[in-house]
Simulated scan of single mutants.
Amino acid sequence: MTQAIPTAEAATVAVPVPDLGPNVRCHVLRPGRPPLFIEPAGAALCERARFREWTRAARPVLDALILEHGGIVLRGFPTVGTEDFAAFIEQFPAFDGGYAGGRAPRETISGRVMEATRLSASVRLAVHSEMAYRRDYPRRIAFFSRKTAEVGGETLIADVRDLAERMVPELVGKIAALGSRTAINFGPRRDADDASYAHMDERGWNQSFHTEDPAEVNRLCAERGLEPAWHDDGSLTVFNVLEPFVVHPQTGRKLYRSILHMQPQVEHPEQERERRQRQKYPTGATLGNGEALTDAERAHINQLCDQTTYSWPWRDGDVMVLDNLQVWHGRNPYQGTRDVQVALLD
């Protein structure tokens, strides 16, 4: 099993948030560190109807807290099943870009609720900004832990609010000047979706784009600013040119949003080497001039990410909402059964 990020019990550093009312209490893992945990204080919000009424009234405050803290976790409230999670996210605007052609092997469960990922349980999913390989991306992402794994499986987060500032200035200048170009690969058309994928590139393009028509894939790509390249074996590569640094629309802070430093997450590294040799355009990102970051440059960015990557023991029913630019997410490998569901929010 791939090495996991260790977890630690969440310390209860109390944070007063009077605008949320007297029926909740808040705490953080550490001052200045996301997320803000919000829990019921007493039984008043442990009934579904009252909890949903409270979330509707508290939405503006929750929005402000997600922005301020980078994310929130609602714990101990009556979110037991998918329908409860769906009712909660209905309070937030949906990301209207959809997930057609998305990287992760996932399917829709109901309405706006999707699976987190079908990537093999043995793989550690590195922290990332959701859809960092795309021009259009959700402003926020919500997670619901319907069933926590018996061992591992914690959702990792990384506070990247000051990542660009901590990067070597010369590297920042190089990346900003050259930009990036991503290549994402999809397998040939497949008749059935697998329950688990050892590699994200194995999923068929029809399963990822939710259509059997290559012309519709081309249309969707054009709509999203993507360049499709079809191959003789029926597989597909999608290219995208991106700015690796963005300005947060609310804080005005310069943030790094890219997969330039990342290597594909795989179950068997030796098979990955063989796969990359077979692919005409290996999955990943290069600078705009076609050059990859050096090993030292990738290691530098990954080291900075590791310094602010952490997790905590999750509980059934936990709901987390992250600011997708300020806080990245990932997943520890796990054993047993795990049911984490997600929704893309604006």
Results as ranks from 00 to 15, higher is better:
295 D>E: 14
26 C>L: 05
175 I>W: 01
75 R>D: 01
83 E>S: 14
119 L>C: 11
254 K>P: 00
124 R>Q: 10
189 R>K: 15
41 A>F: 11
7 T>I: 13
7 T>H: 15
78 P>E: 01
346 D>S: 09
337 T>W: 08
102 G>Q: 04
293 L>G: 08
335 Q>G: 13
285 A>D: 05
80 V>M: 11
327 V>Y: 06
4 A>T: 07
223 E>A: 14
145 S>A: 15
221 C>E: 02
19 D>A: 14
262 M>L: 15
274 E>M: 11
338 R>Q: 10
217 V>G: 05
92 F>C: 06
303 Q>W: 13
226 L>G: 04
333 P>T: 04
1 M>Y: 13
71 G>H: 00
10 A>R: 13
285 A>T: 09
248 H>P: 01
54 W>N: 00
304 L>Y: 01
107 E>M: 15
247 V>Y: 08
180 S>C: 10
155 T>C: 03
243 E>Q: 11
165 E>N: 13
277 Q>F: 08
5 I>N: 06
288 G>N: 05
125 L>Y: 01
302 N>C: 14
163 L>D: 00
74 L>W: 03
45 L>T: 02
316 D>I: 09
151 V>Y: 10
228 P>L: 04
246 V>G: 07
282 P>T: 12
276 R>A: 13
33 R>H: 13
244 P>V: 03
292 A>R: 12
242 L>C: 05
83 E>R: 14
18 P>R: 04
218 N>W: 10
240 N>S: 15
28 V>C: 02
300 H>M: 12
309 T>K: 08
91 Q>A: 14
150 E>C: 06
248 H>W: 04
133 Y>F: 06
163 L>V: 00
185 N>E: 06
181 R>T: 14
265 Q>P: 14
209 F>A: 05
74 L>A: 07
276 R>P: 09
11 A>R: 15
118 R>T: 06
10 A>T: 15
91 Q>C: 14
155 T>I: 01
302 N>G: 13
175 I>S: 03
63 D>K: 07
172 V>K: 07
299 A>I: 08
307 Q>D: 14
341 Q>E: 09
258 S>H: 00
17 V>Y: 03
222 A>Q: 09
